[in-house]
């Protein structure tokens, strides 16, 4: 009888431990198991997304409103398509602009959104037409160090 009670306590303890570990893994891996379906999916095409990674943050006015889900090449194989998952309630309009920014001079890349304000709201699955790939610091520095051809 006493053994059964002990086993039950151990069992519950193990289950709680597994639940805690799962929660930690989901949180640290930034996976969306619960509530992921409600998020707003938007995509945008950039000339270059050099340095941007899956899971990078998406911000409006410095506030995180989502993350980068996937990055791939478009049909022509020339431009990068980035899909974002945004938290519910975020409103974007037809003239919204997505730009790739760097945290500090050599920090991580993230996506900054300017929501715009035209009459047409961007529907779920919509595409942000206006994008900015940002200044390529490496290119600028390399031109500065090595000089131009001309």
């Amino acid at each position: 009888m006493k053994d059964a009670k002990l086993e039950l306590i151990v069992g519950v303890f193990v289950l709680v431990g597994i639940a805690a570990l799962t929660y930690l893994a989901v949180k640290l891996g930034k996976l969306e198991v619960i509530g992921g379906g409600k998020n707003l999916e938007i995509h945008a095409e950039f000339d270059s997304v050099a340095g941007l990674k899956d899971g990078a943050t998406v911000e409006i006015a410095g506030v995180q409103v989502g993350q980068v889900k996937k990055i791939w090449l478009n049909g022509d194989g020339e431009r990068a398509v980035v899909s974002f998952s945004l938290t519910p309630g975020v409103k974007l309009y037809g003239d919204a602009i997505a730009s790739i920014k760097t945290r500090g001079l050599i920090g991580d890349k993230y996506v900054s959104l300017s929501p715009g304000g035209s009459q047409k709201e961007l529907p779920p699955g919509g595409k942000i037409r206006e994008t900015e790939s940002g200044i390529d610091f490496e290119k600028a520095i390399s031109e500065f160090i090595h000089g131009n051809v001309k």
Binding site: D47, I97, S99, S114, E130, E132, S133, I135, D136
Partner: peptide
């Protein structure tokens, strides 16, 4: 960046070295 309005293309933004004129003024 152009938009077609009544069969004529008009520029609504200029992106110089990856930075947009509209976004610059918007901020």
């Amino acid at each position: 960046k152009l938009q077609k309005i009544s069969d004529e293309w008009h520029v609504y933004d200029v992106v110089v070295e990856g930075t947009s004129l509209v976004l610059n003024y918007r901020e």
